[in-house]
Nucleic acid binder design. Sequence first.
DNA 1: ATATAATATGAAATATTCTTCATATGAGAA
DNA 2: TTCTCATATGAAGAATATTTCATATTATAT
Lengths: 103, 103
Amino acid sequence: MKHDLNDYCYLFFSTFSNPTRLGIVEQLREGPKNVTQLSEVLNQEQSMISHNLKPLIRCHFVLVEKKWREHVYSLNEETMRPLFKIIDSHVEKYCPMKGKCKR
Amino acid sequence: MKHDLNDYCYLFFSTFSNPTRLGIVEQLREGPKNVTQLSEVLNQEQSMISHNLKPLIRCHFVLVEKKWREHVYSLNEETMRPLFKIIDSHVEKYCPMKGKCKR
DNA sequence: ATATAATATGAAATATTCTTCATATGAGAA
DNA sequence: TTCTCATATGAAGAATATTTCATATTATAT
């Protein structure tokens, strides 16, 4: 059924459509981290990080590994790498102001 | 400055993070259309279509061509095609329930 | 100049999504 | 068991985004 497309795309895009979650992704690009570390480096409450990790994990953009009593989060590079590549080249070509364009 | 990444990615993703706009994109995948046609096929008010076309155009995901007194909108295939390819393969691999996964 | 068709815009009302705070859970150490 | 560290969760208030409705604009035809 064609309408599915709309549903799963919405979930896909809306998951990234949040500054905190993009901050998490940006941090995880530099390597795996646990909640406490993300919380420190992003200077946000721990509960906020947890809340925002959830949708990223649900969509498998972020993977979890349980180590001792901590949870280590990392990026699903297989999806994220080509995704960011597309964004970068789109922005490169069409958005000289890089997101600061007039509303 | 590194924070740019976050900014332009947010604009990129949030532009798609809306069912009406995804509906427009879905329709335009089948070929160029004007506002009135989109409005009819999506069964939405004309002003709603116009409002939602705006962010798609601003980000150059949708291109406009002015013909007589109508405006013809079409997809920027260069960006959209690879983008949907990534989403499709991600969903194929990780989301057997295609967007209907538990919240 | 006026009428009409196609599209765009502003602003208020509505809906959706986020953040915060308090608290719960879970796993290991003492 | 009890304590502590690490993380998760629920729910209310706050912030954002979307939809609607009335109206404006723009281009063309008469």
